[in-house]
């Protein structure tokens, strides 16, 4: 283990370390803590410039109710869900198929296909903006949930395929071979043998891709414009203008927008990190 475990160090070091942890956390998360504090402040506090002191009253329920009642925040949240969930499913489904092909079949273009998927994933996506926008418009999908879903599936497929391929490569070939000997069709092999084995990878990937898509802002600006479709990221920034200096409400809105991926992260932390650190331990 590196650095050396402090278990065997002096009592002083141990105590100091344990005290320093919460302090560093507090410093690290200070901007966020401020936002959370502000989200429960009263407008009087805000107007009197009491931003950093102790709140004079806790308006937790009022402020958060206000966010949902007087703005489209509820709609934005719903839109984000309606866009993110199908997009995650689509991207994971397509890339599992493609990942299987790249992992378990030897064919000439194999490595090049993989390179294309990876390269595409790293592209500065701004270069896609104008053509994708035109494409979406000509498909009649501009300003629809489907328009964003389709794009996210396509774009995330690059990363997801790499991920699934690297996972499936590790599955034992013997299983597939013996099934083939028994005359099982290729698709059935995929469905009945491969799919059950990749379940943990699917979970890791889904959680990770969920946050990517949920937090997307650029494409939400480019492909969507009405409140009935707009996801929460773009919604939040459009609310910023409407609420004037009601920073308590803006903060509450920000907390609401951040909540779903944060919850998911804490609930599925291990999967999440496994997905994220893909490749970080191999060379």
């Amino acid at each position: 283990m590196y650095p050396k475990s402090i278990k065997n160090s002096s009592r002083f070091v141990n105590v100091a370390y344990r005290i320093s942890l919460p302090i560093t956390i507090l410093l690290w998360l200070m901007p966020l803590a401020a936002v959370m504090m502000t989200s429960i402040r009263s407008i009087q506090d805000i107007n009197q410039g009491n931003y950093w002191g102790w709140p004079t009253s806790f308006n937790f329920i009022e402020n958060y109710m206000m966010v949902f009642q007087s703005t489209e925040m509820g709609q934005y949240l719903l839109n984000s869900i309606l866009i993110t969930i199908p997009a995650v499913m689509g991207a994971v489904a397509l890339s599992t198929l493609a990942g299987f092909a790249l992992a378990k079949y030897k064919f000439k273009a194999n490595i090049w296909m993989l390179a294309i998927f990876i390269g595409g994933n790293f592209v500065p996506f701004q270069i896609l903006m104008i053509p994708v926008r035109d494409l979406t418009i000509s498909l009649g999908l501009y300003d629809t949930h489907m328009g964003l879903i389709m794009f996210h599936i396509a774009f995330q497929t690059g990363f997801c395929t790499l991920f699934m391929r690297n996972f499936i490569v590790g599955l034992p070939n013997e299983l597939l071979e013996s099934a083939r000997v028994d005359g099982v069709s290729e698709f059935k092999i995929f469905w009945h043998i491969v799919l059950p084995l990749v379940r943990p990878a699917l979970a890791a990937l889904s959680v990770l891709v969920f946050t990517f898509i949920w937090n997307d802002y650029f494409w939400a600006l480019v492909l969507v414009q009405s409140d009935t479709v707009r996801p929460v990221t773009a919604g939040l920034s459009s609310l910023q203008g409407q609420w004037l200096a009601s920073w308590n409400l803006i903060s509450a809105g920000a907390v609401v927008a951040a909540l779903p991926p944060v919850t998911l992260f804490f609930a599925m932390q291990r999967h999440f990190i496994a997905g994220l650190t893909l490749g970080a331990t191999k060379g």
């Binding site: 092909a101 396509a154 690059g158 995929f190």
Partner: peptide, 29 residues
């Protein structure tokens, strides 16, 4: 030869439409 391509087809199709073609298209534009 065909099997892997069939598995890849849906992903490749979408990826070409939304990523590869737009890159070329932007260059031309």
């Amino acid at each position: 030869q065909l099997t892997p391509w069939l598995f890849m087809a849906p992903a490749l199709l979408l990826f070409s439409l939304y990523v590869l073609y737009p890159i070329i298209s932007s260059f031309i534009l």
